[in-house]
Nucleic acid binder design. Structure first.
Lengths: 348, 348
DNA sequence: AATAAATCTTTACGCGCGACAAGTTTTGCA
DNA sequence: TGCAAAACTTGTCGCGCGTAAAGATTTATT
């Protein structure tokens, strides 16, 4: 005695299965609270039993605004972006949106493709960690005219909505600490993949200036690719061969650069750490998941990617006209710079 | 003298703009080679000028099979999966598919949600790195009945199409090497997040057996979460406090576990490496991007994620009936175990 | 130049669902 | 019990595009 369960493919099928009309079922899927509790329970039971889900394409076809958010990150293998992405995905899902993530993989043409894909998807809104390519700004801005866009990590310009870390504050913090606890740091930059490369360098210089110290930026030629560890490793190997760093403390533009520096130092027999017997202190920026497992554990500044994600989503939802729940505290303005927190560990 | 460029939103608009009929334009987008070269050139010029892209939802609505591939990975912050994913995305794009990536984040319910999302998207096919949860096998298999699915990294069962690393071969390789070059290794497992956890342990034991050596598996209680480094770090700290490892060589189930072990050893003052002055050798498995930048650089076995991605995609396209280009060499069968390559570095 | 073949145009339908209008039933409340 | 409001049903349209059929036009072949 088995049920002849004809496959439920469409909402039509499903509504027949539930014993309700299709418009009612449709209403339910758009807003479960728009139907009576009794009805809701019936539908929910049927959903559970049949596993029916409305066809995404049909749902989004004749909707003015889709329930899809587009996320573009510049590199899909960098833990910072993946962590940020995961956070945003979670929030989006809770709010009934589907987050679609594309990586530009450091290439402007892929960033452009991603934008066009999102355009063809008629996404409700977009959160983008942009590449720093000048020529693409206008494309992004053009897309921004038709759909709400929030920038994260690295600002597109000086006016578009943005959430990121306050590099000035974070570098002031780490420079202060390093200076108080030992040698003043020299600065080891990151490849010029986005505006953070320039901003952080400036932030370092300003922090040094404010302490009446001479900034010492290590001039390294770095291609604009995302293999941060490798370029830092190679450069450091060369530097150590050529007589070493100008000071006994190196502040890196980010943790991945610091990984490369530490690895090169280790292999050159240079002992990294803040102990008496150490030759070099190395500090980073970002607090990547692995930083605490480095040898020695990396002293760094933690970017609050949870907050960055939350606030970017909050800004976006606000622009989308979502009635903000208590959980979506709306920030005061559209240019948000978050403070970072210093993570004192053994490397500096 | 500016063109009054009315917005081109639909293919209707676009075809008028080009001066062709909509069906012809539609044909072009489905297969550019299905129209005359002259026509193709006209359309392509117009695409370039207007930036028109067919609406993804409309395109996929009344298609029997969409041009979307679903990818499910168990953890979005693990570099192995992100690298694998990126590879697959690239291949999919080349073949005219759009890869949609969802992470189950280690949670069976999210894996299930992801599957249902893909079902609602009517994806053409799916590539999945499954969690090892027994109860979900049937859901996956059920989905597999309606759309082609390829499993990677960790097999679902013993029959479904699968591409992954031959753990037997890879562990034989590393155990051989470790044994020849020093102490026979003991084995440090990974949290039981998928079948690799068991398979690798078995593979280690078999490799030891084949050398007439007694396998020594370190019994560690590890929760089934993805914070591999932390659990390995904590366990190692405890072990070192309790008198150390049973042998002077530790083979870890994967690199991330090795990271935790090495960090704990470092902090306990135990020197890791294969030098005369070292206390402990540590080897890993996978060759994560950061492994070569560890201190010391991690000796490990490289999973060929490029090949895993390529072959998974090739298998899938074959099932989708794509005329395989030369680039998609079809493997002989549907259960592919790739050999791994040993990466000799300084840690062991 | 004549004819077949290839390519195009015109016309029409339907994919699955959201949205709306108009009519019917249920519910809540006095 | 009665009556209005709320919640449902039935019916219909259209989102943007794929696709098929039938006719018109261009291209290739002899």
């Amino acid at each position: 005695m088995h049920a002849v369960k004809k496959t439920i493919r469409t909402m039509e099928d499903f509504s027949a299965f539930v014993g309700l009309s299709r418009p009612t079922v449709s209403k339910y899927f758009n807003d479960p609270n728009s139907v009576r509790k009794k009805t809701r329970d019936i539908i929910e039971a049927a959903v559970k039993q049949s596993g029916f889900r409305p066809n995404i394409f049909a749902v989004n076809l004749n909707r003015r605004r889709t329930n899809i958010l587009g996320i573009i990150i510049p590199n899909s293998t960098d833990p910072f972006y993946t962590a940020l992405t995961r956070r945003i995905e979670g929030i989006a899902e809770q709010a009934g949106y589907l987050a679609f993530v594309l990586s530009s993989d450091g290439k402007p043409e892929l960033e452009e493709r991603a934008i066009e894909t999102f355009k063809s998807m008629n996404v409700a809104g977009s959160i983008i960690a942009p590449l720093g390519v000048q020529s693409h700004q206008e494309k992004l801005l053009k897309l921004g005219e038709s759909i709400p866009m929030i920038y994260v990590d690295s600002p597109l310009d000086t006016v578009s909505p943005f959430v990121g870390t306050n590099n000035r504050q974070s570098f002031q913090l780490i420079v202060d600490y390093l200076t108080r606890s030992g040698d003043a740091p020299c600065y080891f930059g990151m490849p010029p993949v986005n505006s953070n490369a320039f901003e952080r360098r400036e932030a370092y210089c300003e922090a040094m200036d404010s302490l009446k110290l001479e900034p010492r930026v290590i001039e390294v030629e770095q291609a604009a690719d995302w293999d941060f560890e490798k370029s830092a490793f190679d450069a450091t190997t060369q530097i150590l061969r050529d007589g070493g760093f100008p000071t006994r403390t190196v502040l890196c533009a980010n943790d991945r650069v610091a990984f490369g520096v530490i690895a090169a130092a280790f292999q050159a027999g240079v002992k990294v750490g803040r102990g008496e017997d150490c030759d070099l202190r190395v500090a980073g920026h970002d607090d990547q998941p692995l930083s605490r497992y480095m040898c020695p554990p990396l002293t760094t500044v933690a970017q609050n990617y949870n907050e960055i994600g939350r606030l970017a989503a909050a800004l976006l939802f606000h622009k989308l006209g979502e009635h903000q729940d208590s959980k979506f505290e709306l920030p005061a303005n559209e240019r948000i710079l978050l403070n970072a927190e210093i993570m004192l560990r053994m490397s500096a």
